[in-house]
Amino acid sequence: MVASGSLPPGVPEDFYARIARTARQHGARCVVDASGPALTAALAEGVFLVKPSRRELEAHVGASLDTEVRQVEAAAVLVADGSAEHVALTLGEAGAVLASRSGVERLTVPPVRVVGTVGAGDSFLGAFVLRLAQGRSAAEALRAGVAAGSATAMTPATELCHRDDVERLERELLEAAGR
């Protein structure tokens, strides 16, 4: 189950936490992309994957995450305390960090001409979840997410990524990693 976005007026702040609880009761995984009290409540319940931006995680932890060390530590704490099994911290032009019990991985974005960033985080999450649903590893999902977010940044206004761009960028990221 994916719980994403701002809650509409009148929806309780613990709505995503309720979704996380229901998912767990039914043996499903819950993915959350939220901010503020909705994010805090969901993490208190525990989720499979959370995808905060740097700004959202800074607000959650109440501290600046202006260095790579602080970013990694904040993501790793959410895993260690059981708030999330996986934390995919998106950092815009600085890439993304993936923390899980098996460790931390950081990916930089491929070089692209940025036209607009609207929808880049949503594209990241969509590609990440798709790769997991396809049975791929979390590292492969991270690569797809970074590729999709970068591909979306190449498009104007609210246009989303194009499949051929995502696949090309995934290949480039794989080649850059030397795998």
Score class of each variant (00 low, 15 high):
Ala3Val: 04
Gly5Asp: 11
Ser6Glu: 03
Leu7Arg: 05
Pro8Met: 03
Val11Gln: 01
Glu13Gly: 08
Asp14Gly: 13
Phe15Tyr: 15
Tyr16Ile: 06
Arg18Asn: 14
Ile19Thr: 12
Thr22Ser: 07
Arg24Met: 12
Arg24Lys: 12
Ala28Asp: 13
Ala28Thr: 09
Val32Leu: 04
Val32Arg: 02
Val32Asn: 03
Ala38Arg: 02
Ala38Pro: 02
Leu39Asn: 02
Leu39Thr: 07
Thr40Leu: 05
Ala41Ser: 14
Ala42Arg: 03
Glu45Tyr: 04
Glu45His: 05
Gly46Pro: 09
Leu49Thr: 12
Leu49Trp: 15
Val50Gly: 01
Lys51Cys: 08
Pro52Thr: 06
Pro52Phe: 07
Ser53Lys: 08
Ser53Ile: 03
Arg55Phe: 06
Glu56Val: 14
Val61Thr: 11
Val61Arg: 04
Thr67Trp: 00
Gln71Ser: 02
Val72Pro: 00
Glu73Asn: 01
Ala74Phe: 14
Val77Pro: 00
Leu78Ala: 10
Asp81Gly: 07
Gly82Phe: 10
Gly82Tyr: 06
Ser83Gln: 06
Ser83Arg: 15
Glu85Arg: 11
Val87Ile: 10
Leu89Arg: 05
Thr90Gly: 05
Thr90His: 05
Thr90Phe: 02
Leu91Ala: 07
Glu93Lys: 14
Ala94Met: 13
Ala94His: 14
Ala96Gly: 08
Ala96Tyr: 10
Ala96Met: 12
Val97Tyr: 08
Leu98Pro: 07
Leu98Ile: 03
Ala99Pro: 05
Ser100Asp: 15
Ser100Gly: 15
Arg101Val: 15
Gly103Val: 08
Gly103Gln: 09
Gly103Asn: 03
Glu105Phe: 02
Arg106Tyr: 07
Thr108Asn: 12
Thr108Gln: 11
Val109Phe: 09
Pro110Tyr: 07
Pro111Leu: 09
Val112Gly: 03
Val115Tyr: 10
Val115Cys: 01
Thr117Asp: 13
Gly126Val: 06
Gly126Glu: 04
Ala127Gln: 05
Ala127His: 03
Phe128Met: 01
Arg131Phe: 11
Arg131Gln: 08
Arg131Trp: 07
Gly135Tyr: 03
Arg136Asn: 06
Arg136Ser: 14
Ser137Leu: 07
Ser137Cys: 07
Gly145Asp: 09
Val146Tyr: 00
Ala147Trp: 07
Gly149Ser: 00
Gly149Glu: 10
Ser150Asn: 11
Ser150Pro: 02
Thr152Leu: 13
Thr155Pro: 00
Thr155Met: 14
Pro156Gly: 09
Ala157Arg: 11
Thr158Trp: 01
Leu160Val: 13
Cys161Glu: 07
Asp165Trp: 14
Asp165Arg: 14
Val166Gln: 04
Val166Lys: 03
Glu167Tyr: 06
Leu169Trp: 11
Glu172Thr: 00
Glu172Asn: 11
Leu173Asn: 12
Leu174Phe: 00
Glu175Val: 15
Ala176Tyr: 01
Gly178Met: 04
Arg179Trp: 05
